[in-house]
Simulated scan of single mutants.
Amino acid sequence: MDGGAYNPRTVEEVFRDFKGRRAALIKALTTDVEEFYQQCDPEKENLCLYGFPSEQWEVNLPAEEVPPELPEPALGINFARDGMQDKDWLSLVAVHSDAWLLSVAFYFGARFGFDKSDRKRLFGMINDLPTVFEVVTGVAKKQGKESHSSNKPKSNSKRGSEPQVVKYSKGLISKDEDEGEGEDEDEEGLEEEDEEEHGETLCGACGESYAADEFWICCDICEKWFHGKCVKITPARAEHIKQYKCPSCSNKRARS
């Protein structure tokens, strides 16, 4: 629907457009899921879920012009809302959203004459990101753990039981850090272990990977990790949260 205002012409621009739309759709299906659910009223006409390069999403009627300026998302997602379980419905919308994202990206590629190497490079950049479906269903997190587990060397130097992780700070901090002499050395070692262990962790909201210089928070219910900025939690606020529940888990409890 917003295709007329922005037309990316290079591989990098199309990929940036793809990432913005993808982030918007993931937001609708995870952190904003309650609002998305309410907007998809089955009593309304055929509705579509749109994601924009600005990372904003919208539920609206399809474009009236034929053919449309851009490929259109799946039509009538609201009609299926009450006919299946919430998680199955969200998964279905996620699958259609993935198909729409690819169609938009390669529409731009065709429109601006991407050759074989450009198309291959664009697909490679897209394929390096988890799909919307993988993020929404948690498959991306599972795949990241399996990949990390298969690549991690075995070591007998692990200190006692696996340290619990505090949900705030720059990077991650262990709850069972030793105090007193040698504290700085232990903290440095733990930070390196945390960076290695969480290197493949993916944000449950945007699907991007863990970075040590970013603030993260873990949901105590589903145990998914989130960028603080994605769930609007700051380090200062996290210090006062005894049990953090992500938007998705909070909404599930509210509906039940």
Rank of each mutant, 00 (worst) to 15 (best):
F52K: 04
D118Y: 02
L202K: 07
V104Q: 05
W225F: 04
G189H: 14
A63N: 10
K175I: 12
V166Y: 14
E12R: 08
E188I: 10
G51D: 08
D88P: 09
L29M: 06
I126H: 05
E181P: 06
G51L: 10
V93S: 12
D118W: 03
V104M: 06
G109F: 00
S155A: 14
S161M: 14
F106H: 08
G189T: 10
K158C: 13
N7M: 13
Q85A: 13
S150F: 11
H96Y: 10
V104P: 02
S91L: 12
V132G: 00
V166W: 09
C222D: 00
K229M: 02
A5E: 12
F215S: 00
Y168V: 07
L122P: 02
A94T: 07
S174V: 13
A80Y: 12
P53N: 11
L75W: 05
I173T: 09
S256P: 07
A24E: 00
G182S: 11
R237M: 03
P235H: 02
E162H: 14
K44M: 08
R237T: 00
F123H: 07
S248T: 05
D98C: 04
Q143I: 12
A94M: 09
I217W: 01
S155E: 12
F215E: 04
P53Q: 13
E43Q: 11
E185A: 11
C222W: 04
E34P: 04
C206P: 06
K175D: 09
N78C: 08
Y50K: 03
A236H: 12
C246Q: 01
S54Y: 05
W100M: 02
E193P: 02
F106V: 04
F108T: 01
D32V: 07
G180M: 03
K19L: 15
L92M: 15
V166N: 13
E72L: 13
D220L: 05
R255N: 14
K252G: 08
F52I: 00
E55P: 01
R121Q: 05
Q39W: 15
G160T: 09
I126P: 01
A140I: 07
S174N: 08
D115S: 01
E35Q: 13
E162A: 14
L70V: 10
C40N: 04
D194F: 15
D118A: 12
Y37K: 08
G51K: 06
I233L: 13
E162T: 11
R9P: 02
F106T: 05
D88S: 11
E196N: 10
L29H: 03
R253Y: 14
L49T: 03
W225N: 02
D82N: 15
Q243F: 08
E214H: 05
V14G: 00
N127H: 09
Y244M: 01
E146K: 13
V132L: 04
N7L: 07
V166K: 15
R81A: 11
K158Q: 15
N7W: 04
D2C: 08
K229N: 04
C246S: 05
